[in-house]
């Protein structure tokens, strides 16, 4: 989901995704973990590589990837709201 969230802002290659995730979430994703996740996301057609001449292909979130990200973020938001309400923080 972190990768999908990173790509929601626009296409990025592997290293840029790693840096972006660390910047917006504080989570340091290892290169092995990153490419395992990228492989699965490509297989599920949630992201697609864009063909470029360089060695680093940028990835782009697909429509189904964006849809899945939206659903998951809404669910998280629902849970977060419920938790904060119970803590009387909102």
């Amino acid at each position: 989901m972190l990768i999908l969230a990173s790509l929601a802002a626009g296409p990025k290659h592997g290293y840029a995704i790693m840096s972006d995730i660390e910047a917006f979430s504080g989570v340091a994703v290892g290169p092995g973990t990153l490419y395992t996740a990228i492989t699965r996301l490509v297989e599920k057609k949630l992201i697609v590589p864009k063909e470029t001449p360089g060695r680093q292909r940028p990835y782009e979130i697909t429509r189904s990837g964006a849809s899945l990200l939206t659903t998951q973020l809404q669910e998280m938001q629902h849970v977060a709201t419920a938790g904060l309400e119970r803590l009387r923080l909102i």
């Binding site: 290659h13 290293y15 790693m18 290169p31 092995g32 490419y35 680093q56």
Partner: peptide
């Protein structure tokens, strides 16, 4: 791609184990 990422990352023990 992974080679490029590794060339630009800090290649410590955690990264090696992770890969």
């Amino acid at each position: 791609e992974l080679e490029e990422v590794l060339l630009h990352s800090q290649l410590g023990a955690p990264a090696i184990v992770n890969v």
